[in-house]
Design a protein around this nucleic acid. Structure first.
Lengths: 202, 202
DNA sequence: TTCGTTTTAGGACAATTGTCCTAATTATTT
DNA sequence: AAATAATTAGGACAATTGTCCTAAAACGAA
């Protein structure tokens, strides 16, 4: 495959990734991507046969990047609560882009669902990735019983905040909701008897 | 305006409304709408000059329909808490469609935001309509201080549930989250001193 | 250099897009 | 019945879409 770090193929994927996010998948044309990468539209076919192929490559890239991010959080943050908080705070870290373009995961999945696109399940894997990871963190927190429910709940809350932040472009609201999520997490932590790590009995 | 109940104009708006919801605005063509209404593509121009004109008409129709719905809730439900609960439960009432196409308000606003469409502010009025109405109900509940925050919070929660319900097609999750919203509302009510409405005793 | 492979640019292709015009057909009024 | 207005169908229009072909250029190995 591509050992070199900056192959044309990777530059195409990177440009498509950004454009799909900012303009949406259907609204982004071959011409748009070609222009962004500075290659001719004809040459495009050499690297990707169809537009769907690009989409799949972009989703794969996002999956890899997300996987990497989650892994980094695991090494950077020592406690599961801290890790979950990292997730919550991407709402602020990416606040500017979210206010302009929404959540990259949610908006893509919603668009593909409406199109009934063949790759919609592939895109949903991005959600699944976060879901599994969050679920795992809640389990480590000692909430194995409802870890997945908590993960889904947090995912939903984040999605909702992102959607309204896009519509209203309201940074105060965004910060407010993040604070509430922080409080919610604190409550989950404090209402849990004992972290499961290194604990013998439940 | 149109006194007759089933003019071609209204049938166009109705068909466009549905198609915009199911396929998205950009992904819906003149041909799609013309076929749904069973008129020729050429004739279309007589009723609407541009596609943007249809969008504006659809948004206006949705605003009117939403306004009517909220007003109906006000007469059907006597207490503000009951009215807010009506809002929460559209997630279940429209559950099937939401799982397939997402929330009609959220998905339209997000799409228009990404397109940076001229009518995006017009579409956002749908959100504003709900926001104001919910805020008013929370005020009646006796929460004038944070009524708007509560309204935004509830809006966000609903949007998030809708987005994940679309991605995961999970009815159990949807019902679960609605129950949590119900509980949340109960808590808001019980933590409030006195309803402001003309009630003598609670 | 010469050969063979990789990569490129340019354009053809049919289909579809939103928009717009015109001639014919209805419907309404006189 | 005649005249006027409202509504329609059909198609033209240029632009853009995703896809695909081919000939030239760039490259690397011999």
């Amino acid at each position: 495959m591509g050992p070199r770090a900056d192959t044309i193929r990777e530059r195409i994927i990177s440009a498509a990734d950004q454009l799909f996010y900012e303009k949406g998948y259907e609204q982004t044309s071959f011409a748009d991507i070609a222009q962004a990468v500075n290659i001719s539209r004809g040459n495009f076919y050499y690297h990707f046969k169809t537009k769907d192929d690009i989409l799949d490559a972009v989703i794969d890239a996002r999956l890899a990047k997300t996987s990497q991010l989650l892994q980094a959080w695991e090494t950077e943050a020592t406690t599961p609560a801290e890790r979950i908080r990292r997730f919550i705070h991407i709402l602020i870290a990416n606040g500017g882009k979210i206010q302009r373009y929404g959540c990259p995961v949610g908006t893509l999945c919603t668009e593909l669902a409406k199109l009934d696109h063949v790759s919609k399940d592939e895109a949903n894997k991005l959600f699944i990735l976060f879901r599994r990871w969050l679920s795992q963190q809640f389990t480590l927190l000692g909430r194995e019983a409802d870890a997945d429910d908590l993960a889904m709940h947090l995912l939903a809350r984040s999605q909702g905040v992102a959607t309204l932040a896009t519509a209203f472009q309201d940074e105060k609201f965004l910060n407010q909701e993040v604070k509430q999520l922080d409080d919610w997490l604190d409550q989950v932590v404090s209402s849990t008897k004992q972290p499961a790590a290194s604990v013998i009995e439940n």
